[in-house]
Amino acid sequence: MANIKFTGVHKSFGSNKIITDFNLLGKEDEFLVLVGPSGCGKSTLLRMIAGLEKIDEGEIFINDQKINELHPSKRQTAMVFQSYALYPHMNVYENMSFGLKIEKRPKEEINTKVMQAAKILKIEELLERKPKQLSGGQRQRVAIGRAITRNPKIFLFDEPLSNLDAALRAEMRVEISKLHNQIKTNMIYVTHDQVEAMTLADRIVILNHGNIEQVGTPEEIYNDPANVFVAQFIGTPKMNILKVSQEEISSNQINFLGNNVKIPNVNLEKKNYFIGIRPEHFSVSDDSEYKFEPKIDLIENLGNEKIAYIKMNNHEISAKISSQNKIENQMGFNSKDIFLFNENGERIKS
Protein backbone atom coordinates (compact mmCIF):
# COMPACT_ATOMS: atom_id res chain seq x y z
CA MET A 1 0.00 0.00 0.00
CA ALA A 2 2.11 2.81 -1.19
CA ASN A 3 2.54 5.17 -4.02
CA ILE A 4 5.73 6.58 -5.35
CA LYS A 5 6.26 9.91 -7.02
CA PHE A 6 9.25 11.29 -8.86
CA THR A 7 9.44 15.01 -9.56
CA GLY A 8 12.22 16.40 -11.69
CA VAL A 9 14.84 13.86 -10.66
CA HIS A 10 18.34 14.42 -12.03
CA LYS A 11 21.41 12.31 -11.64
CA SER A 12 24.85 12.48 -13.17
CA PHE A 13 28.14 10.72 -12.55
CA GLY A 14 30.77 13.37 -13.13
CA SER A 15 29.98 15.02 -16.42
CA ASN A 16 28.00 12.00 -17.54
CA LYS A 17 24.30 12.78 -17.23
CA ILE A 18 22.45 9.59 -16.44
CA ILE A 19 18.96 10.82 -15.69
CA THR A 20 17.52 14.16 -16.70
CA ASP A 21 14.24 15.52 -15.42
CA PHE A 22 12.50 12.29 -14.54
CA ASN A 23 8.84 12.61 -13.56
CA LEU A 24 6.58 9.70 -12.79
CA LEU A 25 3.67 8.86 -10.56
CA GLY A 26 3.30 5.25 -9.48
CA LYS A 27 -0.14 4.00 -8.51
CA GLU A 28 -0.96 1.96 -5.44
CA ASP A 29 0.04 -1.70 -5.47
CA GLU A 30 1.27 -1.34 -8.98
CA PHE A 31 3.83 -3.59 -10.62
CA LEU A 32 5.99 -1.08 -12.42
CA VAL A 33 8.64 -2.31 -14.82
CA LEU A 34 11.48 -0.05 -15.88
CA VAL A 35 12.87 -1.32 -19.12
CA GLY A 36 15.45 -0.01 -21.52
CA PRO A 37 18.77 -0.78 -23.13
CA SER A 38 21.84 -1.03 -20.90
CA GLY A 39 23.13 2.32 -19.76
CA CYS A 40 19.75 4.00 -19.89
CA GLY A 41 19.79 4.74 -16.16
CA LYS A 42 17.16 2.28 -15.02
CA SER A 43 19.31 0.65 -12.34
CA THR A 44 20.50 4.04 -11.12
CA LEU A 45 16.89 5.08 -10.71
CA LEU A 46 16.18 1.99 -8.63
CA ARG A 47 19.25 2.55 -6.49
CA MET A 48 18.13 6.14 -5.92
CA ILE A 49 14.83 4.87 -4.57
CA ALA A 50 16.67 2.42 -2.34
CA GLY A 51 19.02 5.13 -1.11
CA LEU A 52 22.18 3.52 -2.40
CA GLU A 53 22.71 6.43 -4.78
CA LYS A 54 22.35 10.11 -3.97
CA ILE A 55 19.66 12.14 -5.73
CA ASP A 56 21.34 15.13 -7.37
CA GLU A 57 18.25 17.18 -7.96
CA GLY A 58 14.50 16.71 -7.72
CA GLU A 59 12.47 14.74 -5.21
CA ILE A 60 11.20 11.24 -4.68
CA PHE A 61 8.15 10.72 -2.49
CA ILE A 62 6.85 7.51 -0.99
CA ASN A 63 3.33 7.96 0.35
CA ASP A 64 3.82 11.73 0.07
CA GLN A 65 6.87 11.54 2.33
CA LYS A 66 10.01 12.96 0.79
CA ILE A 67 12.72 10.31 1.02
CA ASN A 68 15.67 12.19 -0.44
CA GLU A 69 17.48 12.51 2.86
CA LEU A 70 16.16 9.37 4.57
CA HIS A 71 18.61 6.59 5.41
CA PRO A 72 18.17 3.55 3.12
CA SER A 73 16.92 1.45 6.01
CA LYS A 74 14.16 3.95 6.85
CA ARG A 75 12.67 4.12 3.37
CA GLN A 76 10.67 0.91 3.84
CA THR A 77 11.95 -0.54 0.62
CA ALA A 78 13.56 -3.91 0.05
CA MET A 79 15.83 -4.70 -2.83
CA VAL A 80 16.50 -7.93 -4.66
CA PHE A 81 19.88 -7.72 -6.32
CA GLN A 82 20.87 -9.14 -9.65
CA SER A 83 23.69 -11.06 -8.00
CA TYR A 84 21.41 -12.11 -5.10
CA ALA A 85 23.90 -10.66 -2.55
CA LEU A 86 23.16 -13.33 0.05
CA TYR A 87 25.45 -13.34 3.07
CA PRO A 88 27.61 -16.39 2.37
CA HIS A 89 28.51 -17.04 6.00
CA MET A 90 24.91 -17.34 7.14
CA ASN A 91 22.38 -20.02 6.35
CA VAL A 92 19.10 -19.29 4.61
CA TYR A 93 17.20 -18.70 7.84
CA GLU A 94 19.83 -16.27 9.13
CA ASN A 95 19.94 -14.51 5.79
CA MET A 96 16.21 -13.97 5.83
CA SER A 97 16.01 -12.95 9.46
CA PHE A 98 19.11 -10.74 9.51
CA GLY A 99 17.34 -7.44 8.96
CA LEU A 100 14.76 -8.18 11.66
CA LYS A 101 17.47 -9.26 14.06
CA ILE A 102 19.29 -5.97 13.55
CA GLU A 103 16.04 -4.21 14.41
CA LYS A 104 15.93 -6.31 17.60
CA ARG A 105 12.45 -7.65 16.95
CA PRO A 106 11.16 -10.40 19.25
CA LYS A 107 12.23 -13.92 18.33
CA GLU A 108 8.71 -15.25 17.78
CA GLU A 109 7.90 -12.45 15.38
CA ILE A 110 11.08 -13.10 13.40
CA ASN A 111 10.29 -16.78 13.29
CA THR A 112 6.73 -16.34 12.03
CA LYS A 113 7.80 -13.85 9.40
CA VAL A 114 10.59 -16.04 8.08
CA MET A 115 8.34 -19.07 8.05
CA GLN A 116 5.64 -17.17 6.20
CA ALA A 117 8.06 -15.98 3.57
CA ALA A 118 9.58 -19.45 3.26
CA LYS A 119 6.12 -20.89 2.76
CA ILE A 120 5.23 -18.42 0.06
CA LEU A 121 8.43 -19.21 -1.81
CA LYS A 122 8.42 -22.96 -1.02
CA ILE A 123 11.89 -22.93 0.50
CA GLU A 124 11.00 -24.32 3.93
CA GLU A 125 13.30 -27.29 3.55
CA LEU A 126 16.27 -25.13 2.57
CA LEU A 127 16.37 -22.99 5.72
CA GLU A 128 19.40 -24.73 7.20
CA ARG A 129 21.52 -24.55 4.06
CA LYS A 130 24.26 -22.11 3.22
CA PRO A 131 23.93 -20.08 0.01
CA LYS A 132 26.71 -22.02 -1.70
CA GLN A 133 24.67 -25.21 -1.35
CA LEU A 134 21.79 -23.72 -3.33
CA SER A 135 21.12 -23.58 -7.03
CA GLY A 136 20.71 -20.28 -8.83
CA GLY A 137 16.93 -20.39 -8.72
CA GLN A 138 16.91 -21.26 -5.02
CA ARG A 139 19.30 -18.44 -4.25
CA GLN A 140 17.02 -16.03 -6.05
CA ARG A 141 14.08 -17.30 -4.02
CA VAL A 142 16.01 -16.73 -0.81
CA ALA A 143 16.90 -13.24 -1.94
CA ILE A 144 13.22 -12.53 -2.58
CA GLY A 145 12.36 -14.13 0.75
CA ARG A 146 14.79 -11.84 2.50
CA ALA A 147 12.99 -8.91 0.92
CA ILE A 148 9.58 -10.23 1.98
CA THR A 149 10.51 -10.62 5.65
CA ARG A 150 11.35 -6.93 5.78
CA ASN A 151 7.71 -6.23 5.03
CA PRO A 152 8.52 -3.30 2.76
CA LYS A 153 6.13 -0.84 1.20
CA ILE A 154 7.98 -1.11 -2.07
CA PHE A 155 9.85 -4.04 -3.51
CA LEU A 156 12.76 -3.18 -5.76
CA PHE A 157 14.00 -5.78 -8.19
CA ASP A 158 17.26 -5.11 -10.00
CA GLU A 159 17.36 -7.50 -12.98
CA PRO A 160 16.72 -10.43 -10.65
CA LEU A 161 16.43 -13.07 -13.34
CA SER A 162 19.28 -12.22 -15.64
CA ASN A 163 21.66 -14.69 -14.00
CA LEU A 164 19.32 -17.64 -14.46
CA ASP A 165 19.08 -19.93 -17.45
CA ALA A 166 16.17 -19.58 -19.85
CA ALA A 167 13.92 -22.30 -18.42
CA LEU A 168 14.41 -21.18 -14.83
CA ARG A 169 13.87 -17.58 -15.82
CA ALA A 170 10.46 -18.40 -17.28
CA GLU A 171 9.57 -20.30 -14.13
CA MET A 172 10.70 -17.53 -11.77
CA ARG A 173 8.85 -14.99 -13.88
CA VAL A 174 5.62 -16.80 -13.17
CA GLU A 175 6.56 -17.05 -9.48
CA ILE A 176 7.16 -13.33 -9.20
CA SER A 177 3.85 -12.64 -10.92
CA LYS A 178 2.08 -14.92 -8.45
CA LEU A 179 3.94 -13.30 -5.59
CA HIS A 180 2.62 -9.91 -6.60
CA ASN A 181 -0.91 -11.23 -6.68
CA GLN A 182 -0.38 -12.79 -3.27
CA ILE A 183 1.21 -9.88 -1.43
CA LYS A 184 -0.32 -6.77 -2.86
CA THR A 185 2.52 -4.30 -2.66
CA ASN A 186 4.22 -1.90 -4.99
CA MET A 187 6.94 -3.53 -6.96
CA ILE A 188 9.44 -1.76 -9.13
CA TYR A 189 11.26 -4.08 -11.41
CA VAL A 190 14.24 -3.21 -13.58
CA THR A 191 15.06 -5.33 -16.58
CA HIS A 192 16.42 -5.11 -20.08
CA ASP A 193 14.37 -8.10 -21.12
CA GLN A 194 11.19 -7.04 -22.91
CA VAL A 195 9.56 -10.41 -22.30
CA GLU A 196 9.82 -9.94 -18.55
CA ALA A 197 8.50 -6.42 -18.95
CA MET A 198 5.50 -7.49 -21.01
CA THR A 199 4.56 -10.47 -18.83
CA LEU A 200 5.05 -8.97 -15.39
CA ALA A 201 4.10 -5.35 -15.61
CA ASP A 202 0.94 -3.52 -14.74
CA ARG A 203 2.62 -0.59 -16.38
CA ILE A 204 5.85 -0.42 -18.32
CA VAL A 205 8.18 2.55 -18.27
CA ILE A 206 10.42 2.54 -21.31
CA LEU A 207 13.63 4.45 -20.74
CA ASN A 208 16.28 5.61 -23.14
CA HIS A 209 19.27 7.80 -22.24
CA GLY A 210 17.66 8.65 -18.93
CA ASN A 211 14.41 9.87 -20.48
CA ILE A 212 11.02 8.29 -20.44
CA GLU A 213 10.05 7.26 -23.94
CA GLN A 214 6.62 5.95 -23.00
CA VAL A 215 4.66 4.84 -19.99
CA GLY A 216 1.74 2.50 -20.39
CA THR A 217 0.23 -0.92 -19.91
CA PRO A 218 1.82 -3.72 -21.93
CA GLU A 219 -1.10 -3.60 -24.37
CA GLU A 220 -0.70 0.12 -24.89
CA ILE A 221 3.00 -0.20 -25.43
CA TYR A 222 2.56 -2.99 -27.93
CA ASN A 223 -0.46 -1.69 -29.81
CA ASP A 224 0.15 2.00 -29.53
CA PRO A 225 3.85 2.79 -29.39
CA ALA A 226 4.69 6.47 -29.08
CA ASN A 227 7.75 6.43 -31.26
CA VAL A 228 10.13 4.29 -33.30
CA PHE A 229 12.29 3.47 -30.28
CA VAL A 230 9.41 2.01 -28.30
CA ALA A 231 8.00 0.29 -31.37
CA GLN A 232 11.27 -1.46 -32.04
CA PHE A 233 12.10 -2.18 -28.41
CA ILE A 234 9.02 -4.27 -27.71
CA GLY A 235 8.35 -7.37 -29.81
CA THR A 236 10.59 -10.07 -31.28
CA PRO A 237 11.73 -9.95 -33.99
CA LYS A 238 11.63 -6.20 -33.74
CA MET A 239 9.21 -4.12 -35.78
CA ASN A 240 10.19 -3.47 -39.38
CA ILE A 241 10.82 0.22 -39.83
CA LEU A 242 11.03 1.29 -43.44
CA LYS A 243 11.92 4.72 -44.65
CA VAL A 244 9.54 6.30 -47.13
CA SER A 245 10.80 9.25 -49.12
CA GLN A 246 8.52 12.02 -50.33
CA GLU A 247 8.69 10.77 -53.93
CA GLU A 248 6.83 7.66 -52.89
CA ILE A 249 3.85 9.62 -51.67
CA SER A 250 1.10 10.61 -54.03
CA SER A 251 -2.51 11.55 -53.51
CA ASN A 252 -2.58 10.53 -49.86
CA GLN A 253 -1.17 7.11 -50.65
CA ILE A 254 2.20 5.57 -50.00
CA ASN A 255 3.92 3.34 -52.46
CA PHE A 256 4.95 0.53 -50.19
CA LEU A 257 6.14 -2.92 -51.29
CA GLY A 258 4.61 -2.39 -54.73
CA ASN A 259 1.23 -1.39 -53.38
CA ASN A 260 -0.35 1.99 -53.11
CA VAL A 261 -1.28 1.90 -49.46
CA LYS A 262 -3.84 4.22 -48.05
CA ILE A 263 -3.50 4.92 -44.36
CA PRO A 264 -6.91 5.58 -42.85
CA ASN A 265 -7.64 8.96 -41.27
CA VAL A 266 -4.26 10.45 -42.09
CA ASN A 267 -3.54 13.30 -44.41
CA LEU A 268 -0.12 12.69 -45.86
CA GLU A 269 2.12 15.58 -46.73
CA LYS A 270 5.03 15.62 -49.14
CA LYS A 271 7.54 14.64 -46.47
CA ASN A 272 9.72 11.73 -45.44
CA TYR A 273 8.04 9.21 -43.21
CA PHE A 274 8.79 5.97 -41.47
CA ILE A 275 6.46 3.06 -41.83
CA GLY A 276 6.40 0.42 -39.17
CA ILE A 277 4.92 -3.02 -39.44
CA ARG A 278 5.38 -5.90 -37.04
CA PRO A 279 6.75 -9.18 -38.44
CA GLU A 280 3.78 -11.09 -37.03
CA HIS A 281 1.36 -8.93 -39.05
CA PHE A 282 2.47 -10.33 -42.37
CA SER A 283 0.41 -13.24 -43.51
CA VAL A 284 0.35 -15.76 -46.32
CA SER A 285 -3.43 -15.99 -46.55
CA ASP A 286 -5.31 -14.59 -49.51
CA ASP A 287 -7.65 -12.28 -47.61
CA SER A 288 -5.09 -9.54 -46.91
CA GLU A 289 -5.78 -6.04 -48.10
CA TYR A 290 -2.45 -5.64 -49.86
CA LYS A 291 -0.25 -8.29 -51.36
CA PHE A 292 3.27 -8.50 -52.66
CA GLU A 293 5.72 -11.06 -53.99
CA PRO A 294 8.49 -11.58 -51.44
CA LYS A 295 12.10 -12.28 -52.39
CA ILE A 296 13.15 -14.50 -49.55
CA ASP A 297 16.73 -14.35 -48.35
CA LEU A 298 16.56 -16.83 -45.50
CA ILE A 299 14.03 -18.70 -43.42
CA GLU A 300 14.62 -19.52 -39.76
CA ASN A 301 12.48 -22.32 -38.44
CA LEU A 302 11.75 -21.98 -34.73
CA GLY A 303 9.48 -25.01 -34.58
CA ASN A 304 6.11 -23.38 -33.98
CA GLU A 305 6.84 -20.48 -36.27
CA LYS A 306 9.10 -19.41 -39.06
CA ILE A 307 10.86 -16.14 -39.54
CA ALA A 308 11.40 -15.16 -43.13
CA TYR A 309 13.96 -12.53 -44.02
CA ILE A 310 12.87 -10.70 -47.11
CA LYS A 311 14.75 -8.26 -49.28
CA MET A 312 12.59 -5.97 -51.39
CA ASN A 313 13.08 -2.57 -52.98
CA ASN A 314 16.14 -1.87 -50.82
CA HIS A 315 14.11 -2.73 -47.72
CA GLU A 316 15.00 -5.59 -45.40
CA ILE A 317 11.92 -7.03 -43.80
CA SER A 318 11.36 -9.88 -41.40
CA ALA A 319 8.06 -11.71 -41.30
CA LYS A 320 6.84 -14.17 -38.71
CA ILE A 321 4.41 -16.82 -39.86
CA SER A 322 3.12 -20.02 -38.40
CA SER A 323 5.29 -22.95 -39.40
CA GLN A 324 2.30 -24.84 -40.76
CA ASN A 325 1.92 -22.26 -43.47
CA LYS A 326 4.05 -22.53 -46.52
CA ILE A 327 5.51 -19.42 -47.98
CA GLU A 328 4.62 -19.33 -51.61
CA ASN A 329 5.06 -16.42 -53.88
CA GLN A 330 2.57 -14.16 -52.19
CA MET A 331 2.43 -12.39 -48.87
CA GLY A 332 0.03 -9.82 -47.55
CA PHE A 333 -0.62 -7.21 -44.89
CA ASN A 334 -3.42 -4.94 -43.76
CA SER A 335 -3.41 -1.17 -43.52
CA LYS A 336 -4.69 -1.25 -39.93
CA ASP A 337 -1.45 -2.91 -38.83
CA ILE A 338 0.71 -0.14 -40.20
CA PHE A 339 2.26 2.37 -37.84
CA LEU A 340 3.22 5.70 -39.30
CA PHE A 341 6.05 7.79 -37.85
CA ASN A 342 7.28 11.20 -38.88
CA GLU A 343 10.86 12.08 -39.80
CA ASN A 344 11.85 12.44 -36.15
CA GLY A 345 10.51 9.00 -35.34
CA GLU A 346 7.41 10.24 -33.52
CA ARG A 347 4.19 8.41 -34.07
CA ILE A 348 1.46 9.91 -36.26
CA LYS A 349 -1.74 8.53 -34.83
CA SER A 350 -4.57 7.72 -37.14
Partner: peptide, 12 residues
Protein backbone atom coordinates in the same frame (compact mmCIF):
# COMPACT_ATOMS: atom_id res chain seq x y z
CA UNK B 1 31.11 -8.04 -3.70
CA UNK B 2 29.81 -4.57 -3.07
CA UNK B 3 26.21 -5.73 -3.26
CA UNK B 4 26.69 -7.60 0.01
CA UNK B 5 27.40 -4.34 1.78
CA UNK B 6 24.51 -2.63 0.03
CA UNK B 7 22.22 -5.43 1.16
CA UNK B 8 23.58 -4.92 4.66
CA UNK B 9 22.92 -1.17 4.48
CA UNK B 10 19.31 -1.92 3.59
CA UNK B 11 19.25 -4.30 6.55
CA UNK B 12 19.87 -1.25 8.75
Amino acid sequence: PKELEEAAIMDK
